[in-house]
Amino acid sequence: MPMLSRTAANLFWTGRYIERADFVCRLVDATARLASLPSTYGGDPTAWTGALASAGVADAFADTGLEPSELNITPFLTIGAANPSSIRNCLERARGNARAVRTALTREAWESLNGAWHEVERFTGPRLSRARAGELVEMVRRAVLAFDGSAHRTMLRDDAYWFLQLGAAMERADNTARLLDVKYHLLLPRDEAVGGSLDYFQWATILRTVSALTAYRWVYRDTVKPWLVADLLIFNTQMPRSLASCYGEIVELLDHLGEGSGRRGPAHRVAGSVQLGLEGTDIDQVFASGLHEFINRFLADNNQLGAAVAEQFLF
């Protein structure tokens, strides 16, 4: 069944914004943990500015003219009106997009999102204590799980569902890649005493931001090593936030979306070639040719896919 292009676009963006809200939640959580470590254990006074960069909002924060301290950055990331990617703004946009296409979501999926938005409205700034920020993050993470769960349990497996998931998968890939982009220098292979590096806590923070610290241990059965962190986040197809997993999902979703018409378009081509590129490379080659360059190329490809989706489905 074809669907309205506007509806498809709204669902795609609902998926993206919910995913982004979830990412920022985990980022705030992991950063608070890193920043609270004593400096002798790698506690990083620049942890919060790093978080701004990982969320892609360093410039937006600079525009506020505020001092880059936890006191200012936490509310900016969570409820900041001037931050297009604040958790609150993400939920508001996700809800706005969903409300315009109320009929394309099930009542359960809509209510979990609408309920979360009303909850977030209760968190007002300009200050937000660490405890309050923690409450907000916890509430939103639960709401996102509830949304995913209701979508999974109640939505028809039709184009509406695929577009919602497509937005989420592309945003997820983008988030993981941006995190790698900001932290790549920490992941370059170096000769260092195993376990002796203060960077350990940085690596753990990266893994926490993508909910993968435990997963790492299950996959590699090894202490945290930076090149394996990069491998997990880029190539591991079991790890749902890795670039390879996201693209596997994207290609599958685009196939579903093409089933109705039997047509394939520019989005299929771009996604297919990115996936092929990931399959034909390993972590050693990436380090050999430059992790930073690799990530930058990936981010550009992901943007190009966004444009191709808009073109193909007439957004």
Binding site: P2, L4, A8, L314
Partner: peptide, 9 residues
């Protein structure tokens, strides 16, 4: 017609 992801309906 309406504009859909698969063209006009």
């Amino acid at each position: 017609f309406m504009r859909t992801t698969e063209g006009p309906r």
